[in-house]
Simulated assay, not measured.
Amino acid sequence: MTEQQTKSGTEAWFTLSGDVNSDMVHRVFESVSAMTEAGVERAHILIQSNGGYVSDGLCMYNFLSRAPIEFVMYNGGAVASIAVILFLSGTRRYASETARFMVHKSHATASPGARPDALNIIVEGLRADDARTESILRKHIELSPEQWAIHQYSDLHLTSRDAKAARMIDDVADFAPPRGVHIRNI
């Protein structure tokens, strides 16, 4: 933390990029622990991720949305797949004019020659993941019936303006830390 942050003890600025996986979960846990120890009350986080594992994204969503810190999330480029769920953990959310979001249903690849019972297990897992993520999407955003229909069978791409109309973001705005503030990568 910089001297300015230590004095106020209220705000800090971070970046978080890469695949949503167990490594990212660990980094987020460690960083939030350090934030709470440093007295951070509001954390601004720029996210750049094309997604990853559903369970890891859900874990971070649940953890961050209930942590004793206000998280302000930013999309400066791309937030896609399960990273959208992570992004939605923010109490306030923003995206740059040129940022994009992408949401889709879960998918998996079966092993060649997989038996029907193995395929059934994969399908049931995908349905469970879809139910979990869709409940969070519906809690936070308001898509049009046409957008929900696209989401049902394909990738749904949203510009920052689309995301604002869907209440995914509060406004179109850039991640803009104050001059001299230390920016940490999670």
Rank of each mutant, 00 (worst) to 15 (best):
D155F: 01
I69C: 09
I121F: 10
L119R: 08
A99D: 02
Y153Q: 15
E142Y: 14
S106K: 03
S111V: 15
D171H: 07
R161I: 12
K105M: 12
D162V: 11
R127M: 14
F101V: 00
L143T: 00
I122F: 05
D117C: 11
R66S: 10
H157S: 13
H140S: 12
A95N: 02
A80D: 01
R127L: 15
H104Y: 08
H104G: 02
G113I: 06
S65P: 05
E97Q: 09
L137F: 04
G90M: 04
L156Y: 00
W148I: 01
D171I: 04
A173H: 11
H140C: 08
I82A: 02
T109V: 11
A166C: 10
F175E: 00
H140R: 06
F63Q: 09
R167L: 12
T109C: 13
I121T: 12
G113K: 05
K105Y: 12
S89K: 04
G77P: 07
D170M: 09
K139H: 12
Y74N: 03
H151R: 08
P68A: 11
A118Q: 12
R161L: 13
P68F: 09
E134Q: 10
T91L: 10
F175Q: 01
A128H: 15
R100S: 10
I141M: 07
A118C: 07
G90E: 04
I69N: 03
A99V: 02
V172N: 06
T133Q: 14
D129W: 14
M168L: 03
I150Q: 03
A165E: 13
L143I: 04
D130W: 05
G90D: 04
T159P: 02
H151Q: 14
Y153G: 08
F175M: 02
E142M: 09
D174H: 10
R100V: 07
D130R: 03
S81T: 02
L137Y: 07
L119C: 11
L119H: 10
K139D: 15
L137P: 01
V72W: 11
H140T: 07
D170K: 07
F101R: 00
A131S: 13
D129V: 08
E142C: 09
A80Y: 01
L64H: 08
D130T: 06
Y74W: 02
P112S: 14
D162S: 05
D130M: 03
I150V: 09
F71H: 10
M168P: 01
E134P: 05
T109I: 07
H140N: 12
L86I: 08
G77E: 11
S154H: 15
D174T: 14
E124I: 07
T98L: 08
R161A: 14
R167A: 15
T109R: 13
A114G: 12
A149F: 06
E124R: 11
Q152F: 13
A173S: 07
A163G: 04
R138C: 04
V123T: 12
M73W: 01
P68Q: 08
S135D: 11
G113H: 05
R92I: 08
S96N: 08
I85F: 02
S106G: 13
